[in-house]
Design a protein around this nucleic acid. Sequence first.
DNA 1: GGCATTATGACTGTATGCTGTCAAATCGAC
DNA 2: GTCGATTTGACAGCATACAGTCATAATGCC
Lengths: 158, 158
Amino acid sequence: MPENPDAFAHPASRLALEVFRLNGALIATGDALVAPLGLTSARWQVMGAVAEACGGQPVAGIARNMGLVRQSVQRIVDELAAEGILRFAPNPHHRRAKLVQLTERGEALFAEASRRWLVLADALAAALGAEDVARAAEVLCAAREHLHQAQAREEEAA
Amino acid sequence: MPENPDAFAHPASRLALEVFRLNGALIATGDALVAPLGLTSARWQVMGAVAEACGGQPVAGIARNMGLVRQSVQRIVDELAAEGILRFAPNPHHRRAKLVQLTERGEALFAEASRRWLVLADALAAALGAEDVARAAEVLCAAREHLHQAQAREEEAA
DNA sequence: GGCATTATGACTGTATGCTGTCAAATCGAC
DNA sequence: GTCGATTTGACAGCATACAGTCATAATGCC
């Protein structure tokens, strides 16, 4: 056992495992955080992307910013629009691709969700150290870019 | 805008975003990596947990090790067993909770998957620095524990 | 101006994970 | 030894994300 390459002990393996686990923990925590507002982690994340875009992006653009496919975002956006949390505004550059915006109710909900999250985020940063948290985020970002490039080279070869 | 607390710029927010994105990238990369073997990221991860347990755990135990619920793992295990990749062995301590083990074919598949992964893992560690990767993994682990504790306190209060 | 390419939304199907629920089996307090 | 609590497997339902496909709208090349 010691002489064969132990994939479990590899630093990259440990990182991948922790990403999977923390991803699950973050979704669970987020769900619990915004459930009293009638939201879920996925809805909250979509609202965040809409807020970040300041209501100037169609569904496909929001999906790109989130790193998801259009279809996943479209379903959430449709649900949130049906509940009066998001609305569609005319797009001067594209007749079909309406711009997605937060309604007043959506703005209020997102502000309340952000307030709740910041309490937890501050506690996290204080417990782990803001510096270390920021460095970890940079490593994850670099890892993602490396994977994307490797994937691109793989597809190019095929 | 500058005077209100910008939740997007918070170090913990950036970390959470990168975790979501890297999680997706890792699953996509893993799927591409083991697809030629007839596997998926989820199946591969379950096989990894079975391999790590050396065939001495029932489904519920494997799920605990992976941080998932029993039901998610059970479905994958049943599929892999139907394909001759996993098998169930009698459990001397529990009549119903059979032990999950890799078959010979499963061992071979997992070894090949590990071999493919290690190429990518080595490249990742080399590009980002094994030290930084390990440190990032530790930060993610600490973040998860912090979230679990916060969740536990929340439930206790309710 | 016309046409191929790309972008976008809509629809369908599939994979993965969670929750809820139930019965069987085990474990522990007494 | 008995009975309640816990663990485990099994089944059903739901949420989220992906891939494939099609029609429509926009863009770019000629």
